[in-house]
Structures are given as C-alpha cells and as structure tokens.
Design a protein around this nucleic acid. Structure first.
Length: 263
DNA sequence: ATGGTGGCTTTGCCA
C-alpha cells in the first residue's frame, strides 16, 4: 500500500496537481492538509474520477481543512476537535486490516516563539500537549496506527537548512522539538521516512514561497511527516519525498511525502 | 534587521 501526505495549500486551485500525483505516483491513499474549502464545495467528483472512491474530508471557509482520498474503503471516519476551536485540523479513519490512520494539520504557530507575546504559538503548544495526552489516553502502542500530516515542526538538525539559524525560528525551536518528541514517545511512533533516510542526510518537504530561488538557495524544512506504531515497523517498505513537485507552475510550498507499506 | 510570496476573498488574515 502506498500512502502520500501533502499540504496542498488549496485543493481547488491545485486539483490538477493532485491528479498528476495520482497518475505518476499512484498512491492508494492521499492525505491532504490546508484544503481551504468548506465541505459542500469540496471537489469530490474530480477526486472520484482519479480513482479515489472513498473520500473523507473536514473543511472550513478559507483556512485549514484536511482530507483523506482512498482507493480502499474507509471506516469509522472521525474528526477530533483539538483545542475546542472547530478549526478542521484532524481527520481519522480505519483502513482494511484494522489500521487506524490519523491525518493532522498542526497549527503553524505564528512568527514569535513566545506564548506571552504570540497567542498562535501558545495555540500550537497547547495543540501538541493535547496530542501528547490524547494518544496514550485513547490508544496503545500495540495498535496498528499511522499518523501523517503537516506537523509544522522540523525536529532534527538535518530537517532544516541551518540548525543554528533556525533555533529561534518557529518550527525548529527547542520547546517545539521537545513537545513533538513527547508526542512521538507517547505511543512509540516510528518516523517512517527517517527509517529509510539516515539522520545524517538533509531532507526537506517545504520551501518558502518568499525565497527568490527555492531550488538553488534550498532553505527548506521537513515539516511533513509519516509515523507508524511498532506493529507496522516490519511492514515499512520504502519512503520518498517528491522534491520536484515544488517546481513548475503554481506549486504548493509543500511537496508530497510518500511511504510504502506491505500490509 | 528587514522583507520577501501566495491563497482566500480580505482590502486583512493566515501561512
């Protein structure tokens, strides 16, 4: 089974890029974040024409929004309302074989890494705290689970273009990295991408729109992740990050991250 | 130290 996660930054504007991903990489499941569309305007027919007959989504006008596009049946579709804001940052479903899939869009956290000066950073930390508590309270590490999404944190030194220069930049501050580590430890999540790409190797999934030349300057960060619980470790069969997707006309600022599993 | 781009539907908010 091939699983992709992608912050699409408007599913309606980039529906053709989703079709391109479906055609060239043939994922069985595509998890999207930042769909930026309320549910009654979601491009459901276009997605079904790509071969994804099982679709779950939770969106709102203009901001946030998550979706799961699947060639295999989805059961127990559920959305959890983190921090009680109703802001459409999570959707989960059970895949054939009883594997539970969670798709997250963690708050970006604004510019200033201080919750006293920046409410958005506080929201991000609170969201992570809820994740840290929710998984062990509701699920065990023995359950087959996959977590994907734009977690908006680059945890490793090689997940950013300059560890030193980003230590005070939201997405790579020690407090965020520590909390993401706590999320990871909560049910023994395994980083499925780093399972295949050594930590010594730089790996990014996002490049700012603001860079003059994203490819040459390469000031990227790895914000998009795929994790699995220990019972799926032996099923991990490969991982890739579709860097080329950052190029061309009207790209998202994120690229798809893919993991293959032998389920 | 600053400002740079992009999407939505704003003339600002969010990333």
């Amino acid at each position: 089974m091939r699983l992709a996660t992608w912050n699409i930054n408007s599913v309606r504007l980039r529906i053709n890029r989703v079709a391109q991903l479906a055609k060239t990489s043939e994922p069985d499941i595509i998890c999207l974040q930042e769909t930026k569309v309320q549910d009654d305007l979601f491009p459901l027919e276009a997605v079904k024409e790509m071969g994804y007959q099982h679709v779950a989504f939770k969106g709102m006008k203009s901001y946030n929004g998550v979706a799961i596009l699947s060639r295999v049946p989805l059961e127990n579709v559920h959305t959890e309302d983190w921090c009680g804001r109703g802001d459409c940052r999570h959707i989960s479903a059970t895949l054939p074989g009883g594997v539970e899939l969670h798709n997250f869009y963690v708050p970006a956290g604004g510019d200033i890494p201080d919750r006293e000066k920046n409410e958005k950073f506080g929201h991000k930390l609170d969201f992570l705290d809820e994740m840290i508590n929710w998984f062990p309270a509701n699920r065990s590490a023995e359950k087959k689970m996959i977590m994907v999404g734009d977690l908006n944190i680059a945890p490793l030194e090689t997940d950013v273009w300059s560890h030193k220069q980003l230590l005070k930049v939201v997405s790579h501050t020690p407090v965020e990295v520590e909390k993401l580590g706590n999320v990871q430890e909560s049910v023994d999540w395994i980083d499925a991408v780093r399972h295949f790409v050594p930590e010594s190797e730089r790996l990014f999934s996002w490049w700012s729109y603001r860079a003059r030349d994203w490819d040459t300057s390469d000031r990227g960060r790895r914000l998009d992740h795929i994790w699995v619980t220990p019972p799926l470790k032996n099923a991990l069969a490969g991982a890739s990050v579709l860097r080329d997707s950052r190029g061309g006309e009207k790209p998202s600022d994120h690229v798809p991250v893919i993991v293959d599993l032998d389920l």
